[in-house]
Design a protein around this nucleic acid. Structure first.
Lengths: 112, 112
DNA sequence: CAAATCCATAAATAACCGTTTATATGTCGT
DNA sequence: ACGACATATAAACGGTTATTTATGGATTTG
């Protein structure tokens, strides 16, 4: 069925994506941004961690494409980029030759 | 729309999933297993890396739920577990309140 | 231009993870 | 039970990444 192959370059890009998501704090940042576009200060308040730390993680997330930054006045507004997640999922599907759409839910079988 | 919240425990589990996928070698292992169920020796041949290294990564992938192991004779056959990926995607969708189905493909816009 | 605000970057340290090398566990055949 | 094969685990090392602390750059306000 799937005579699958993927270049090193593509694989590395995939891993960069996963790497950007392997931190609880980053997932929290993303969840916050999913609720509303925010600046660094907002996130600092919501997540209760230092400003440089937020900035650093935002940089990582931006480099991975999961968020975009836009300067407005002295703030920088960060915004979730759902397309990056869709692309990530699409690449996994291609790599593994499986479908990750909700059709998988037909059986309803989940782990224990 | 999404008054989203997720427990620390769930988030940590998500990160464990991403962590398990942030290595090129692991993605290669998964791709190989997507083509055919294999034992450690098979993977060693295909991927050209040492046996303990393969074993270690397989252990990580197994703990994250992406593969299952079944002992048959003196071999251990490893098998891809697509449901784990589907669950991962489902959790991201819940966390971020976005849909990751193929609808994103309507435009056909992919990476550059 | 000075003060205040918002954010990014640098340097130093600590925690984590992958890789190797060596060894142990388990299974089959004789 | 012994030797061969297949896999797992342990210990040690090295590299990478997260976190803190301190500082610099950019922008608005007066």
């Amino acid at each position: 069925m799937s005579d699958n192959w993927m270049s090193d370059k593509e694989l590395r890009r995939l891993t960069r994506g996963f790497q950007a998501l392997h931190s609880v704090l980053r997932l929290r940042i993303l969840a916050a941004l999913a609720e509303r576009e925010s600046n660094v200060r907002d996130l600092e308040d919501v997540l209760r961690v230092s400003q440089p730390l937020i900035s650093w993680h935002l940089t990582q997330l931006r480099q991975a494409g999961f968020v975009t930054a836009e300067r407005v006045g002295r703030e920088v507004r960060y915004q979730l980029q759902p397309a990056a997640f869709q692309e990530l999922v699409g690449t996994i599907e291609a790599l593994l030759g499986i479908s990750l759409s909700d059709e998988g839910e037909i059986n309803g079988t989940l782990e224990g």
